[in-house]
C-alpha cells in the first residue's frame, strides 16, 4: 500500500432539493508513472490509482479511469444532482489492490 494516502473531499453541507452542486476531491498519492528512472537508471515500477468512483445514495455520479498521465495527488472536480438528503460515497482503487474510501452527508435546506 502506498504510504500517506489521504482522501479529501469538499461537498456543501446542505443544498436545495434538485440542486446541482460542485464537488471537489483530492487524494494524496505519488502516482508513480512507470516511465521515470531512479539514480541507477532502473525504471521505477508503476504505482497509480487507476479508478475513481463517486456515488450518491448508491447511484453513480461519475466513474473515472485514470492513466499514468494524471498528476501526483489526483484532483477531480465535477457536478452532481441532489434530489434528496443522503450520502456521497467516494472510492479510489490503487494498482496494488488497496481501496480508499470516504463519505460525506448532505442535508436538504
Amino acid at each position: 500500500m502506498a504510504k500517506g494516502v489521504k482522501p479529501r473531499v469538499k461537498v456543501p453541507k446542505s443544498a436545495a432539493a434538485g440542486d446541482v452542486i460542485t464537488i471537489k476531491t483530492l487524494i494524496s498519492h505519488k502516482m508513480e508513472s512507470g516511465v521515470r528512472k531512479d539514480g541507477d537508471g532502473n525504471i521505477i515500477p508503476r504505482s497509480i490509482i487507476n479508478r475513481f468512483v463517486a456515488d450518491f445514495n448508491g447511484q453513480n455520479i461519475i466513474d473515472v479511469t485514470l492513466e499514468p498521465a494524471i498528476s501526483t495527488n489526483p484532483y477531480f472536480q465535477f457536478e452532481a444532482m441532489v434530489p434528496e438528503a443522503g450520502e456521497f460515497k467516494f472510492t479510489w482503487y490503487d494498482d496494488d489492490g488497496s481501496v480508499y474510501e470516504t463519505s460525506k452527508k448532505i442535508k436538504i435546506a
Binding site: 453513480n60 455520479i61 473515472v64 479511469t65 498521465a69 477531480f76 465535477f78 457536478e79
Partner: peptide, 27 residues
C-alpha cells in the same frame, strides 16, 4: 505527445449534474 496518449476517461452516471469534469494532468 505523451509516451502513452491516454490520460483519463470520465463515465457519467444517472446522478451527474452536468456532463463535465476537471482534473490535473502531466504533459
Amino acid at each position: 505527445g505523451n509516451p502513452t496518449p491516454a490520460v483519463a476517461t470520465f463515465n457519467f452516471g444517472p446522478m451527474a449534474g452536468t456532463r463535465s469534469g476537471a482534473t490535473r494532468i502531466r504533459l
